[in-house]
């Protein structure tokens, strides 16, 4: 089985190490992973701003580049959610669309649902708190939402629990939005900052050393606030925990 690695555009430019860690993890499971060079962006910034025409151009591009892979895996919940739930408006009925819709996975979701490992050989002796980023959480369903009346679960925690030495801090608000929201971060700057500060404060209050999660974009936003305000906590993308010690 051939895996197409889909690295969100901003991660390619700004977070090469986190992206590389994603690749290393996938390869550590013995998978045949390829990064198609012509990929750029899934079109989410355009779509979330209402620019349907521009988004549709990029959606079609994405389809052509990725439809040949058995699975498409990305280190981002929100980009995967774009493909799975928002591409239909642009690609419904096109050749290969159903395939990419059903076979594009967020990294942790892919490990949890498809690879299903029994153990991971990695250690991270720190207290972490999980940031449930909204699209991964409420659209992809990586963990149970606080709004719903269901048996609690978390695929993210299931995977992290295989890490030696790790411990978890509990938040007061388990799944409130951090206020990143793509272009929202700029359009509604005041709200974005207020939400981000409150979210970081909740993580700090929990006694956590690291905020981790499946969306680098949310972490980038919170890290930006942490650095500006010199707050006593750090963010770490989940692959950077899981890839420790991998070559």
């Amino acid at each position: 089985m051939k895996i197409g690695l889909f690295i969100p555009c901003f991660m390619n430019e700004l977070y090469p190490q986190a992206s590389m860690d994603t690749l290393k993890i996938l390869e550590s499971f013995g998978l045949d992973v390829e990064y198609p060079m012509e990929q750029t962006c899934c079109g989410q910034p355009q779509a979330n701003t209402g620019c349907a025409h521009e988004a549709s151009i990029l959606a079609k591009r994405f389809l052509q580049i990725f439809k040949k892979y058995d699975y498409i895996v990305a280190p981002s919940g929100s980009c995967v959610s774009m493909v799975r739930y928002n591409y239909a408006q642009f690609l419904e009925g096109m050749d290969g669309f159903e395939h990419i819709k059903n076979n594009t996975f967020e990294l942790i979701e892919f490990i949890h649902d498809i690879i299903k490992p029994d153990s991971l050989h990695v250690s991270f002796p720190h207290k972490v708190s999980i940031h449930n980023s909204c699209h991964a959480h409420r659209e992809l369903g990586l963990a149970s939402m606080s709004e719903k009346s269901v048996t609690p679960f978390s695929k993210i925690k299931d995977i992290l629990e295989m890490v030696d030495g790790i411990s978890f801090a509990t938040l007061q608000r388990n799944d409130e939005c951090c206020g990143f929201g793509g272009t929202f971060a700029v359009t509604e700057e005041a709200m974005s900052i207020a939400m981000g500060r409150d979210r970081v404060a909740d993580h700090i209050r929990s006694g956590s050393e690291y905020i981790t999660g499946v969306d680098m974009s949310c972490l980038m936003h919170m890290q930006g606030i942490i650095e500006r305000e010199k707050l006593p906590i750090q963010t770490i993308y989940i692959a950077q925990i899981l890839a420790r010690g991998l070559k």
Binding site: G50, E176, C177, E188, S192
Partner: peptide, 13 residues
Amino acid sequence: PFACSLCASCTNV
């Protein structure tokens, strides 16, 4: 419509 981070909490509540 932009006064929203698309967090989807509303839809689920």
